[in-house]
Amino acid sequence: MQKSLLFIPDISGYTKFIQTTEVEHSQHVISELLEVLISANTQDLKLAEIEGDALFFYKEEEIPSQENLLAQIELMFTAFYSHLKMLEKNRICPCNACATAPDLELKIIAHCGVLQHIEVQGNRKPFGEEVIRAHRLLKNSVDSDNYALVSKDLAQTIELSDYYYSKVFRFLQGSDSYDGQEVPYIYTLIDQNKLNLRAFEQPRSIDFDCEAPIALKLDYPVSANALMEYITNYKYRHLWVKGVDSFEYNDKEVTRLGSEHICVINGKHLNFVTVTKTVGPDQLIYGELTTSPPIVDKLYQFYTFTPLTDNSCKLGVEIFWEARSPLKKLFIALIGKRTFQKNTRSSMQNLHAFVSQNQT
């Protein structure tokens, strides 16, 4: 039988990250990173299992060439750290999970051998000694949490030198004993600065040279961080924003700059994107931009959270708009401004009632 490739990307720091940060947001971050790694699979690797913080891929009875395997490893590291950089730059959430996500790292284990399989509820999965060996290689003596490790069996199969060197890779020899058997491998630490991280669009901060046409404030019996979560986590929207048929959003990601959601009102879709503007050093800010309402060209709504105590804060809501045509300007002056203000005040009061009830 021909040898098969076993390939395991594993997120380093997962246990501490999950145990010491906010559960929901840490789950979202890990889920996003696993999705990024799966999408970076260019070698038609089969996903045998998602193992919490790791992915177990294999390629049955086929080993990629040295060039293709190294390219696959580099691509996964590039995708992983590109996504972390995007999360860091576009973060609006102050929680510990979102703040410490950039500290996560990645290690990849690659091995090969003849596979057996078992079938569980109709799912055929790799099984046997080589699978065990690949997973044991995760418990190695490499003094880093950010590396790629290739078993000596695989390195010899693809003729990868023990001291292969390139811009991204600088392999060294290593070995560890498992159940009294010495298992040699080569490994390389990964320097993020040598990866060609993907560029991403970073939404600009929007600042206005005038006061907001509508500005409302209200105190809330909850911390600024908690109130921001109620507003930026769209699963809570229907509990305090009335008159909306539904909210459509990606429930697998933490809201950040550039995040999009849709309000469906009477069958009409209003598209929103998350933006920001400058606020005071102790304040938090969340903003939304929409170009959907026909009576304006752009409508901005900003929520500013100012801590008062550990368990209370002041919420300020500012609404700005751009309307170029005289007809739109007239409509806003006669009807639009009053409607925006009424709806905003009602939503703030509904949010206050929801928060007060939830606190008790």
Rank of each mutant, 00 (worst) to 15 (best):
E211V: 00
I285K: 00
A199I: 07
K107F: 00
Q66R: 15
Q66K: 15
I319W: 07
L315Q: 08
P126L: 04
S347Y: 10
C112H: 11
I231P: 13
S223G: 03
S31T: 11
F302L: 01
G243A: 14
Q2S: 15
I158E: 09
E211L: 10
A54W: 06
V254G: 06
N250W: 10
K16G: 03
T278K: 14
Y236Q: 06
D44M: 13
N311L: 06
L34P: 00
Y178C: 07
P102R: 03
Q349P: 11
D282W: 01
V273A: 12
Y58Q: 07
G258N: 00
P221D: 08
Q66P: 07
V142C: 05
C98F: 03
F17G: 04
A226Y: 00
I30W: 01
V36S: 10
E74R: 06
R237K: 15
N350I: 05
I109H: 05
G180A: 05
S177H: 12
H83Y: 06
C112Y: 09
N311E: 12
Q173N: 14
N250F: 11
L70P: 04
T274A: 14
E62F: 13
L6G: 11
N96C: 04
D162W: 05
V355N: 03
T255W: 02
Q202C: 14
E201C: 08
K252A: 14
Y286F: 14
A224C: 00
F302N: 00
T274N: 13
G128I: 05
L270P: 04
Y178V: 13
D143Y: 12
P184F: 03
T15L: 02
P293Q: 05
K314A: 13
L327G: 06
Y147P: 03
R256K: 15
G122S: 10
K167S: 14
Q173D: 15
V279N: 03
E22Q: 02
R237F: 15
N68H: 11
T360C: 07
E24R: 09
